[in-house]
């Protein structure tokens, strides 16, 4: 079952590489070293985050839009995958190498679950199919590090909105700037939530509510309630590197707010066509779901199905 899950991810990556044919070193770091960076520790997330915060404001010459705002248009590549966003040890999940924790706050790199939620997380991993492995949508919270991020995330920036997209499960998020329209009613939940953007100096800040609580942060059961609020901050560190910070607040599940910190690096592979690749088909997904069902895994049905009485 686990091997199959990896096969799915790697299959998508391989298919993508066939189209774009970057060097074999493309995965998760090899080719990031070819440009000088203000904060070079791209795969040590805590170190990168610390460096980026220390240098915040010192890089004043990012590409800019006609209105003078930093211009994020382009294809960006993530530096991490979503299997488990805490530290991954070699051998822990099949062939995955060691990876540092994406979590930069709290400092121990662990997700600060409430005690009951920590137990539920373990049960989730044991009993339920990972939602994205069943082709359910990639939620807003895991946009920045989702697996096919090797191929890049596209940012389209307009004067009144930002559109984030990626190839994986044809995901996109349309984020209007504050004031463009009233927030949706609390009762409406969406996989990508309802987001508003605003500028704080040269930092783009995105706040997201109304998130559907059937998305995990990873493949091992990290969940949220429908009260979750995300705050993302995106800032240029140098001309080819973005600092990305995501704060997760959900007092129903976590004992304190926690943060992901990481880089996006500008894709230097020519051509935009990789984003055309269709990640999955409904036939493929149906067969995956039948497979998971037949090996005894169940469909995770959201916070209410696990909430303490």
């Amino acid at each position: 079952m686990k091997a199959r899950r990896f096969g799915f991810i790697l299959g998508a990556v391989v298919a993508t590489l066939l189209l774009s044919a970057p060097p074999a070193s493309a995965q998760f770091g090899g080719r990031f070293a070819d440009v000088e960076r203000a904060c070079p520790e791209l795969l040590d997330f805590a170190a990168f985050h610390k460096c980026a915060l220390e240098k915040m404001g010192s890089f004043t010459t990012p590409p800019r839009t006609p209105a003078g705002k930093p211009d994020f248009n382009g294809i960006w590549r993530a530096t991490r995958i979503a299997q488990d966003i805490e530290e991954i040890m070699p051998g822990q999940y099949g062939a995955f190498p060691h990876m540092n924790s994406l979590i930069v706050e709290p400092a121990d790199g662990k997700i600060p679950y409430l005690p009951w939620a920590a137990k539920v997380r373990i049960d989730n991993e044991k009993n339920f199919i990972s939602p994205t492995a069943a082709c359910l949508p990639v939620g807003a919270m895991r946009w920045s590090y989702s697996p096919v991020s090797v191929t890049g995330h596209r940012i389209v920036q307009r004067p009144n909105e930002i559109i984030l997209s990626m190839e994986r499960l044809h995901t996109y998020r349309i984020i209007p700037f504050v004031g463009e329209r009233r927030p949706l009613d609390y009762s409406v939940k969406m996989w990508e939530g309802d987001s508003r953007g605003h500028w704080e100096g040269d930092t783009l800040v995105i706040e997201t509510n109304n998130i559907f609580d059937r998305v995990w942060f990873d493949h091992i059961g990290t969940f949220v309630s429908t009260d979750v609020k995300l705050t993302e901050r995106i800032t240029y560190v140098d001309a080819n590197t973005l600092h990305y910070e995501e704060t997760v607040e959900d007092p129903k599940v976590f004992s304190q707010p926690w943060k992901i910190g990481k880089a996006f690096v500008r894709s230097n592979v020519e051509g935009l066509s990789r984003m055309d690749l269709e990640d999955t088909t409904v036939e493929y997904c149906d067969s995956e779901i039948h497979h998971f069902f037949n090996v005894g895994q169940k469909l995770w049905r959201g916070y209410e199905s696990v909430a303490p009485n």
Partner: peptide, 20 residues
């Protein structure tokens, strides 16, 4: 004035409400 794309996640709804 407040036109907005929301979500019609056909496959997800099918999984939750039908297939599974």
């Amino acid at each position: 004035a407040d036109a907005q794309l929301m979500e019609y996640e056909c496959f997800a709804m099918q999984v939750f409400d039908g297939l599974w």
